[in-house]
């Protein structure tokens, strides 16, 4: 069959890929060189200081915990908010896609709520949720004054992350379900499939690429939201907090290390999900 590449050609192909990528590294390399030569005469710290921080990610920084810890805190917050966005948003989007009545019922509220930046809701969510963390919600008060991840997961923070993530999930899922070609549903019906079977084997797989695109957008948005939210009052941990705190202490080496990590994780999210989508979900099988 066409399209199956014999394994012998694989190495040649991957070499070709590396060669194609190389030119893209020229500009970053130039920036690094310029930075290196000018760092002495400006405010910028020398690159090796920043690299040293990046190479020792578990050392405490500015008495705020390590780079690893703060990155982990931010990531887990995002994961929690994102999970809620996905768990609520996917079925909502599905219902809005499948039922015109439900769509009419929810359209005004989603259109009003969607453009509202989650950051704009941060003060309100702090007023509503105070700084209640999951330690208190789960009643694990003995953990309260220890360094435990549950202490860092504030309800208000998770709420605005879920807010930021849920609209791309809802809209893309709805879009995906509405975009399923009628002929597939009719084919399934005349071939004897019932409603539940059509849902599982036609509607869901046919809209999966769009649903997945929604998840990808949601991850990206959540990552942006969490950094901004952590830089605002109401928190004292996370990579965004470390970034702001390093600014207050004028520690540009720590700041640059934080920026690098934020960019790197953003890249891993978007590229990683893209690759995962292509490989494992077989999204390409939709090509016609």
């Amino acid at each position: 069959m066409g399209g199956r590449v014999p394994s012998g050609r694989f190495t040649v192909d991957s070499w070709q890929k590396v060669r194609n990528l190389l030119p893209g590294f020229i500009i970053p390399a130039l920036i690094l060189i310029v930075w290196f030569f000018f760092s002495g005469s400006t405010l910028l710290p020398a690159p090796d200081l920043v690299i040293r921080i990046l190479l020792h990610p578990s050392e405490d920084l500015l008495s705020c915990g390590s780079l690893l810890w703060n990155t982990g805190v931010s990531l887990i917050r995002v994961l929690l908010g994102l999970s809620i966005a996905i768990l609520l948003g996917t079925p909502l989007g599905f219902m809005m896609g499948a039922s015109q009545r439900f769509r009419q019922f929810t359209s005004v509220i989603t259109e009003l709520a969607r453009p509202l930046s989650p950051i704009a809701l941060l003060p309100l969510s702090i007023i509503i949720f105070k700084d209640t963390s999951f330690t208190e919600v789960l009643g694990l008060n003995h953990l309260k004054y220890t360094r435990h991840i549950l202490n860092e997961l504030q309800i208000g923070m998770v709420f605005i992350l879920a807010w930021g993530g849920i609209f791309p999930v809802i809209l893309e899922t709805m879009h995906g379900v509405r975009g399923v070609r009628k002929v597939y549903i009719e084919a399934a019906r005349v071939l004897g499939a019932g409603k539940l079977f059509i849902f599982k084997h036609v509607l869901l797989p046919a809209s999966l690429p769009d649903i997945f695109a929604g998840y990808r957008m949601a991850v990206g948005r959540c990552w942006m939201v969490i950094i901004a939210a952590e830089m605002l009052p109401g928190t004292n941990s996370g990579i965004g907090y470390l970034l702001r705190y390093s600014y207050q202490l004028s520690r540009l080496d720590v700041m640059l290390a934080c920026i690098f990590i934020i960019a790197l994780i953003g890249l891993i999210f978007s590229r990683g999900l893209e690759l995962a989508g292509e490989k494992w979900l077989l999204l390409r099988a939709r090509e016609r």
């Binding site: 002929v183 597939y184 009719e186 084919a187 036609v202 797989p205 046919a206 999966l208 077989l282 099988a285 939709r286 090509e287 016609r288």
Partner: peptide, 10 residues
């Protein structure tokens, strides 16, 4: 069907 009603993801 006339054409194109195969499920492309299967």
């Amino acid at each position: 069907f006339q054409q194109g009603a195969l499920f492309p993801w299967m």
